[in-house]
């Protein structure tokens, strides 16, 4: 088991290293300098030049990579070209809003998916199962930005029940106010993630249901509910945990779009505007840290697998 673990750890390290290298190379193949002098603003060209010098954009490539890497290890992700402040600081300022949106969305989508997925699997081939199956396919096919626009059109304008933008009406807004602002972006996120989780959960539960011990349990006359909670879900939890861990990129992309559409003051919107403005240090840091986060969560999922699944534990 230790060997498998070390092997996976080693692989993760390689992936992380590759991610830094690729991110760095992508950024350095960028043609020209960022911060094109903008004719619609009145920039002093000499100031722009001096300012670029301050950013230390010059130097030989490998040396730059190494110094960038060593700064990364010290937690220095560089300075935003637009805000002229540390990227990490800018990201941390926006993290709470993003968590406030994504964590409930994640829990809600997963909770719904687990209940619906189990229910559908138990009635495999039935009307409800087929409806949910088609529905989740449709959910996967919905462009989230379009869904957001339609939601805003319907529930902020057509029926002006819900706010169209932001996180709070006033600085001292009640949490209720924030929750009301949360509804539309949350819905947007949940629809996509639910469809995704639902399909996995259903497959996972189906796989468990086809096992012999379920047939035995049924033969022993246990109630359906008891079987589900005592046998099915614990056994299906492994693939579900994996999927949950692996869905991080999906959740991330979802948040990007939801924050952009509903002017949510989180990391996603900042990333979009930084990308559009070619704020290279920000783009670099964000690509790097999300990729690293995903790699680590993959590793954690593997770890969980090892810890939970006895077969794997003894194989090594």
């Amino acid at each position: 088991m230790i060997r498998i673990l070390l092997n996976r750890l080693w692989q993760t390290v390689i992936v992380l290293f590759g991610v830094t290298l690729i991110t760095f190379l992508i950024m350095h193949s960028a043609p020209g300098h960022p911060l094109q002098a903008n004719p619609e603003l009145r920039l002093d060209p000499t100031a722009v030049e001096r300012w670029l010098e301050l950013q230390e954009l010059d130097g030989p490539l490998p040396a730059q990579y190494l110094s960038w890497l060593s700064r990364l290890f010290r937690g220095d992700f560089g300075m935003s070209l637009i805000y002229n402040r540390p990227v990490l600081e800018l990201a941390l300022e926006r993290l709470p809003a993003t968590l406030f949106l994504t964590v409930p969305a994640f829990l809600l989508a997963l909770g719904l998916a687990i209940s619906c997925g189990t229910w559908a699997a138990l009635r495999q081939g039935g009307f409800g199962d087929r409806l949910l199956g088609l529905g989740s396919l449709a959910g996967l096919s919905l462009p989230s930005f379009w869904l957001g626009i339609i939601l805003m059109m319907l529930f902020s304008y057509g029926y002006p029940w819900l706010p169209a933008a932001g996180m709070r009406t006033a600085e001292d807004s009640s949490v209720l106010d924030i929750l009301i602002h949360l509804i539309l972006p949350l819905t947007m996120l949940v629809v996509g993630s639910f469809s995704y989780y639902f399909r996995y959960v259903r497959y996972a539960v189906l796989a468990v249901l086809s096992q012999d011990f379920i047939k035995i349990a049924r033969a022993r006359g246990f109630t359906e509910l008891y079987i589900v909670f005592r046998y099915v879900l614990p056994n299906a939890s492994l693939p579900i945990v994996t999927v949950a861990a692996l869905s991080l990129p999906l959740l991330f992309t979802g948040a990007l779009v939801a924050e952009y559409v509903f002017s949510w003051p989180g990391i996603g919107r900042w990333i979009i505007s930084s990308t559009l403005a070619r704020d290279y240090p920000v783009i670099m840091a964000v690509n790097l840290s999300t990729a690293a986060l995903v790699a680590l969560s993959n590793f954690l999922a593997d770890l969980l697998y090892l810890l939970i699944d006895p077969r794997l534990r003894f194989k090594a």
Partner: peptide, 21 residues
């Protein structure tokens, strides 16, 4: 390992980045 490296990037973010550059 190469596939792992590409897989850990969220597709949309990577696409945005590359097209932006």
């Amino acid at each position: 390992r190469l596939t792992d490296i590409v897989l850990v990037y969220p597709t949309m973010l990577l696409a945005l980045t590359l097209v932006a550059i």
